[in-house]
Amino acid sequence: MAQKPQKLRITPSAGAAVEVLFNPTEYTISQSNLYADVRPEGTEQPILQFVGGDADELSLDLLIDTTDPSRGVRDANKLAKPILDLARIHKDLHAPPVCTFAWGGEIMKGVVTSLRRQFLLFDPASGVPMRILISLSVKRYRTLSEQITGMNRQSPDRTKSVVVRQGDTLPSIAEGAYGDAAMWRPIAEHNKLADPARLAPGLVLEVPAIVPALRRGA
């Protein structure tokens, strides 16, 4: 006996799981990073300073079709409603639910940031929509603790370079690099700064690797 094809399944953090009528023909996951323009005086173009990563985004289209009489439903809006509810505020959460998209394994856990309906076919007699294409955009959701855990896996024990921005201080740079503002002296000494209290915007500093002996309280 032929195995029944697995359907894409969406499981929200509140409410019933949704199994799609038709699997998507494709889906896309995009990744992007955030950069800030730092414009040192007299330069031809800005220096790009890495700010952080943006959330991955999943894009996919889901088809709702009621032209098959065996479904017992004529109005495609009725079958589309469980998917539409994924983008609406849940009464218990006071926000749209976090959804896990799975098909042959987990694709992404995220929140629906946009939903678009395209009405493609109508009942000639009543005008009721019988075919709807739903386009979803989903951004990956990670709790603060999950992100902090991920950051901790990225060791600061390597030399990096940063571009000084307006308002930066050595303690603020040390806080961003090491998680400890008091660790500013190794940066000052490594870069042989004559006046650590005065940092010119656009200055490129090397942030040295830290070793356990240099960590505060070690």
Rank of each mutant, 00 (worst) to 15 (best):
S172C: 10
D168I: 11
G217N: 06
L84S: 10
A182V: 02
D168S: 12
H190K: 12
I29Q: 01
T143P: 01
D85Q: 15
P129N: 04
A174D: 12
L63P: 01
A95S: 07
A102W: 03
D37F: 03
L21Y: 07
I132T: 05
G179L: 09
P129Q: 11
F22I: 14
I29S: 07
N33F: 08
P171C: 10
S161K: 14
N152V: 05
K4W: 00
T43H: 14
E57H: 04
R153A: 09
A95L: 05
M1D: 05
H90F: 05
L63R: 10
I173K: 14
S161F: 00
I210N: 10
S161Q: 15
L144G: 13
I107F: 04
A16W: 01
W103R: 00
T28F: 01
S172I: 06
R39E: 13
L120F: 07
V111H: 05
L93Q: 08
N77I: 03
Q166L: 14
M151P: 00
V73E: 12
Q45M: 15
A200G: 00
G179S: 08
A36S: 12
I187G: 11
A125L: 06
R158K: 11
F122I: 06
M108P: 01
R142Y: 03
T169W: 02
D195Y: 04
P96K: 09
Y35P: 10
T143A: 14
S155P: 03
V51M: 14
T113D: 06
V18H: 11
D92M: 09
D56T: 06
T11C: 07
I148T: 13
L170M: 14
R117M: 07
S70P: 03
L133S: 13
M108K: 07
M151W: 06
S30F: 06
P12A: 07
N77Y: 09
Q3I: 13
I10M: 15
Q147A: 10
V162F: 06
G52V: 00
Q6P: 00
S30Y: 05
V98E: 02
H94S: 15
Q49N: 08
L193H: 08
V164A: 10
T143L: 07
R215L: 14
V211L: 04
L8C: 03
L144Y: 08
I210F: 11
I210P: 07
L62Q: 07
T143G: 09
V128Y: 05
A181L: 00
V20D: 13
A2K: 12
N152R: 10
